[in-house]
Design a protein around this nucleic acid. Structure first.
Length: 558
RNA sequence: AACUCCGUGGUGUAACGGUAGCACAACAGAUUUUGGUUCUGUUUGUCAAGGUUCGAAUCCUUGCGGAGUUGCCA
């Protein structure tokens, strides 16, 4: 369905098309292979949309495989959150949930195979010695003194490594390829290392663990993955990926294809840095709404559909690029404009008293729930003599282009009446306490009056006695500079000190009492706001998802 | 000249030897009971130099620029 919608295909889909037409494959199998050592972020979303998206489009399947070959870093906690995030994004792996650790026996057997073929050996060098022997970018490496160890000795040593006879780090199993290879990954890479740790799935069954390189391609082959899609930094691992497939009796022949990872400006994406933000308390957790994690984005109120459409617009290429956060926000607004219910909320209230409105009278006005979806109908909004409006919607001494309320000026209170400001009441410090205004009964519902009078602005309001109190958390970008990773110094130096502003006395239209946790609504003229899980019975909490486009703010800034 | 990969408006991406297009951003204007939405228009680009060709963003050569790679991480 979506294949017909997109006029052009990325280079990966073109390769798949070709493999299908040439008969190289008669189906398409992809996989998403996270290591369960952290939370997923929007960069992973790109890969998820690619792999699961291809499976959908081609009627194939996409496996979820946890790359759990390093027990010191991994945990089930991450397995669970990763599954949740993928589901939230709208994808499902069906019965195809796998773990690299499922293949430990097979991989061990294949290691023995290489040893017997003279293509792997046990190396007793320390990691320092190995590093020295590897050479560097310019100079070839030198052979390990253990490189020509007899097969029987290798078999014996490797088995004893497995049985836990040796200390961590004392020996490794290496492939016997070429110490002078221009690609460092081919200079006798490590296949197995000794790790004395409890694995979250295999417990203490293993004392040795395979490396990523010795695991990934073989796992793909065992699962009959046809196209193994990964990011660019694995490009120079591909010769090794292929070397294992060439030298092992694998059941199928997957192909690794690399694409460019996602970068976004004004944020960081590396797991290490995100972790530091959490552990050092710069954010409230992995799901802090300012984080680029899937859980953060979700809590912020970004719809999964917007993430998917964003991933579609940025495309798949091999060139390094940095996407503008504005592009993501534009996808978010597009979905939310279509779907979000509208309400009125006042974030920074000033009291307004309608002096000619009866003291105890309350009227209910009909307000459209979503102009993009008229079938949703209308809601009732109470209006009374005392109201709140936004402080920014009143100026005592307005500039020419200011259309909103000012002394002697008239505006429309949305869906209610034309209101004129007569008087400004201030305290001794000159702080505005309230505005005294009058309404025009001939403008009921906000209609233009019979005399043809017009106003230039319509502003939102909340009836004071009916208002719900709420906390609203306003988020801005976490970093003040476009590329916090670039340049000199610590990325933490680029943190935006104003990335969170908490408003504790926001006034909401009473209909908002029924908003559910996780729901994202529009506060008219302000932006989109999502109900935070911190909300309690007696106090609702909103996160600002993203503001509305604001051409007045822009004009004012000039 | 280590090796590999990559260079298209401000950003992201298309054009598969035949009119450089789309989205975001920006800037104008129209509509509007959200300074929202919608609609219209405008500005800005093929890294460079050679070559092949009737014709080059696309093919070739050279140069320039960027990224990745020297974990017993993935």
């Amino acid at each position: 369905m979506s294949t017909a919608a997109s006029p052009s295909k990325d280079f990966i889909r073109e390769i798949i098309d070709q493999d299908l037409t040439t008969g190289k494959h008669d189906g398409t199998v992809t996989r998403f292979p996270p290591e369960p050592n952290g939370y997923l972020h929007i960069g992973h979303a790109k890969s998820i949309c690619l792999n699961f998206g291809i499976a959908q489009e081609y009627g194939g399947r996409c496996h979820l495989r946890f790359d759990d070959t390093n027990p010191t870093k991994e945990d089930v906690e991450y397995v669970d959150s990763i599954k949740e995030d993928i589901h939230w994004l709208g994808f499902d792996w069906g019965d195809h949930l796998y773990f690299a650790s499922d293949y430990f026996d097979k991989l061990y057997e294949w290691a023995l195979h290489l040893i017997k073929e003279g293509k792997a050996y046990v190396d007793d060098q320390s990691s320092e010695e190995m590093r020295a022997g590897r050479g560097d970018l310019q100079t070839p490496g030198t052979d390990s003194p253990f490189r020509d160890r007899p097969v029987e000795e290798n078999l014996d040593l490797f088995q004893r490594m497995k049985e836990g006879e040796f200390e961590d780090g004392s020996r490794v199993l290496r492939a016997r390829i070429d110490m002078a290879h221009p690609n460092l990954n081919m200079r006798d890479p490590v296949l197995y290392r000794i790790v004395d740790a409890v694995h979250h799935r295999t417990g203490d069954a293993w004392k040795i663990y395979p490396m990523y390189d010795f695991t990934h391609g073989q796992s793909d082959a065992l699962e009959y993955v046809t196209h193994s899609l990964c990011t660019l930094e694995f490009e120079n691992h591909r010769p090794l990926y292929d070397w294992f497939l060439d030298n092992l009796p694998v059941p199928s022949r997957p192909r690794q294809i690399e694409f460019s990872r996602l970068n976004l400006n004004y944020t960081v994406m590396s797991k290490r840095k995100l972790l530091q933000l959490v552990t050092d308390g710069y954010v409230s957790g992995w799901d802090d709404p300012r984080m680029p994690t899937i859980s953060g984005i979700r809590r912020r109120g970004y719809p999964a559909e917007a993430i998917r459409s964003f991933c579609k617009t940025i495309g798949i290429t091999k060139f390094k690029s940095t996407n503008d956060i504005a592009l993501l926000e534009s996808s978010v607004r597009e979905v939310l404009n279509r779907d979000a219910k509208r309400y009125m909320a006042v974030l920074d209230p000033i009291k307004v008293v309608i002096t000619n409105y009866p003291v105890d009278q309350v009227e209910e006005f009909d307000a459209v729930i979503n102009p993009e979806d008229p079938e949703l109908g209308t809601r009732k909004v109470p209006f009374s003599r005392e109201l709140y409006i936004e402080r920014a919607d009143f100026m005592e001494d307005p500039p020419k282009k200011f259309f909103r309320l000012a002394p002697g000026k008239e505006v429309r209170f949305r869906c209610a009446y034309f209101i004129r400001c007569d008087e400004v009441i201030k305290d001794d410090d000159g702080e505005i306490l309230e505005l005294r205004c009058t309404f025009d009964p001939e403008t009921r519902g906000g209609e233009n009056p019979p005399d043809g009078r017009k106003v230039k602005a319509t502003i939102h309001w909340v009836s004071a006695p009916h208002a719900l109190d709420a906390e609203v958390r306003l988020y801005d970008r976490l970093f003040a500079t476009e590329d916090p990773d670039g340049g000199d110094g610590d990325f933490l130096d680029h943190l935006n000190p104003d990335s969170l502003e908490i408003i504790s006395n926001a006034k909401l239209e009473p209909n908002l009492a029924s908003a559910e946790t996780g729901e994202t609504v529009q506060f008219e003229r302000l932006g989109y706001f999502a109900v935070d899980p911190d909300s309690k019975e007696d106090g609702i909490v909103f996160n600002r998802t993203v503001g509305l486009r604001d051409s007045w703010a822009k004009a004012k800034g000039k």
